[in-house]
Simulated scan of single mutants.
Amino acid sequence: METGAGIGLYPLHRCKNIYLVRHAQGIHNVDGDKNYKAYMSHDYFDAELTQLGWQQVDNLRKHVRSSGLHKKIELVISSPLMRTMQTAVGVFGGDGYTDMSDVLPLMVANAGNSNRAAISSSNCPPIITEESCREHLVCHFSLLHT
């Protein structure tokens, strides 16, 4: 029996696409590239993005917008760490935030020393955080309890 394109276990209208995005460059990546042990430093547990990381966010945001993908995204799930939230909000958040009483910012200005303007929560998919999305759940346990 020959199968054609589009035939699968479930009808396509019942399927969801899942896109996985790794966080942009964080300050921990810079030192970790020089010395792998730096990744275990408690100073980098909740590292924010570097300027290069923000440039990567801007580039991905442009791609997501120009490809029309932003119209198809229904939900964004991020780990609760600063670098992943900055990446998720920077890529999938709404356009420039203007101070309106009925719309809250997804990210306040200069979050994580980013020198970035606030990002709006309007016209974007819901963004939630989930602890189990972290790369390492207990890697810093011994550092926190010594």
Score class of each variant (00 low, 15 high):
Gly112Thr: 05
Arg14Gln: 15
Asn17Val: 09
Cys15Gln: 15
Met107Arg: 12
Asp99Tyr: 06
Leu69Tyr: 02
Tyr10Cys: 12
Met82Gln: 12
His23Val: 06
Ser66Cys: 01
Gln86Met: 08
Arg134Met: 13
Asn29His: 12
Leu143Ile: 08
Tyr10Gly: 02
Arg14Gly: 11
Val21Ser: 01
Gly94Pro: 05
Cys133Gln: 08
Ser66Glu: 14
Ile77Pro: 00
Phe92Val: 10
Gly53Phe: 02
Leu69Ile: 07
Ile18His: 08
Leu9Gly: 02
Gly112Tyr: 10
Ser132Arg: 15
Tyr39Leu: 10
His136Trp: 15
Ile127Pro: 03
Tyr10Ser: 14
Met1Gly: 10
Tyr97Asp: 04
Ala118Lys: 06
Ser101Trp: 10
Glu48Cys: 15
Lys34Ala: 14
Gly90Leu: 04
Tyr10Asp: 06
Ile77Thr: 03
Met107Pro: 06
Asn17Ile: 11
Val30Pro: 03
Thr146Cys: 07
Arg22Gln: 12
Asn59Thr: 08
Val21Glu: 02
Val30Tyr: 10
Glu74Ser: 14
Gln51His: 09
Tyr97Cys: 03
Gly26Phe: 04
Arg65Val: 15
Ala38Met: 13
Ala117Trp: 07
Tyr39Ala: 01
Met107Asn: 00
Gly90Ala: 06
Ala88Gln: 06
Lys71Val: 02
His140Thr: 04
Gly8Asp: 09
Tyr19Gln: 08
Glu135Cys: 00
Pro126Cys: 01
Tyr97Gln: 00
Gly68Asn: 08
Ala47Ile: 06
Lys37Trp: 08
